[in-house]
Design a protein around this nucleic acid. Structure first.
Length: 288
DNA sequence: CTCCAGGCGCCTT
DNA sequence: AAGGCGCATGGA
């Protein structure tokens, strides 16, 4: 197999916690490499000394799509310095998964994936996403004999029946994904436009989609639009915030939203991802 | 078997 | 404003 190969020198980039940490759902670890699809590119990434080794199709000469996705130009150390210094729990979470990053995803793929995420475990979300890609995605030129597909466009999903989507095991989320796909395909929601408005305006637009509330909107704001202060509060973060910061009381999600806006600073979204990963990988330490 | 999963929307107080 | 509940499906 002929492939193009490129080395990206970068410190503090942990592929495992980044690609398998519940931000994106199409990465698989095979024979020591992370296999993924970004737009219409297949790619394989390997964690090596001092950076990341990437393989892509042989005709690849421009790697900017990968640099953008991995956010290689982000100054992680600078971001970590904006975290509150008087927060031992957060500092411990950072020590525990140093090199965890946020990637920059396609808004439609991110929105659709997180509509499928509600009350599902990450493994199941991965399975559902894999099914809709196989069935409704565009076949892509693949290395060796593997079959790979793009993430299905909003237009393609908009043309599905609700039953076709239910057959991908998404249950009650099917009508939400279908209606949202139709809103995006028709232009009723303009996902491209949200790059140029404030976070609050973008959130208000996203929440118009059925099946999209505050939490899912914040995931899209953080993982696709790159608003670093977006702070999605799911059940794990809810537990973390209550146990770490309010062990006596039991504040509501609304109160915790207020707390997160002031406590974590301009990169609250990164702090959220560290706490999320910390809770999921070491729930028994200090927190239970 | 029961409980719960990167929630949302709608229904009661 | 705050809390309860149903929603499909499958792991643990």
């Amino acid at each position: 197999m002929k492939v193009a190969e490129q080395f990206f020198p970068i410190p503090d980039y942990d592929l495992s916690s980044t690609l398998n940490g519940g931000q994106a759902f199409r990465w698989r670890f095979v024979d020591g490499m992370w296999h993924g699809i970004i737009g219409e590119h297949w790619v394989r990434l390997k964690q090596v000394e001092g950076g990341i080794l990437a393989q892509a199709s042989a005709q690849t000469t421009d790697w900017q799509w990968l640099r953008d996705y991995l956010q290689l130009d982000v100054d992680l150390a600078g971001i970590l310095r904006t975290f509150p210094s008087d927060d031992p729990a957060l500092q411990e979470a950072v020590r525990c998964c140093r090199g965890l990053r946020l990637v920059r995803q396609d808004p439609w793929e991110c929105l659709a994936s997180f509509i499928l995420s509600s009350t599902k475990q990450i493994v199941q979300i991965q399975q559902i996403v894999a099914l809709i890609c196989e069935r409704f995605g565009k076949p892509l030129a693949a290395p060796e004999d593997t079959k790979i597909f793009s993430f299905p466009s909003a237009e393609r999903l908009a043309a599905c029946t609700e039953q076709e989507l239910r057959d991908c095991k998404m249950g009650f989320r099917a009508p939400n994904l279908l209606k949202t796909a139709r809103m995006v395909a028709s232009g009723e929601i303009n996902l491209f436009g949200l790059h140029h408005v404030t976070m609050e305006e973008a959130r208000n637009e996203l929440i118009k989609c059925p099946g999209v509330g505050r939490k899912i909107a914040d995931c899209v704001l953080l993982f696709a639009y790159g608003f670093p202060q977006a702070f999605p509060i799911d059940v794990w973060i809810l537990k973390a915030l209550r146990q770490l910061y309010f062990p006596k009381r039991k504040p509501t999600t609304h109160k915790l939203i207020r707390f997160s806006e002031t406590h974590f600073g301009p990169n609250a979204g990164y702090a959220q991802q560290y706490l999320f990963h910390y809770m999921r990988t070491r729930p028994q330490i200090t927190l239970k």
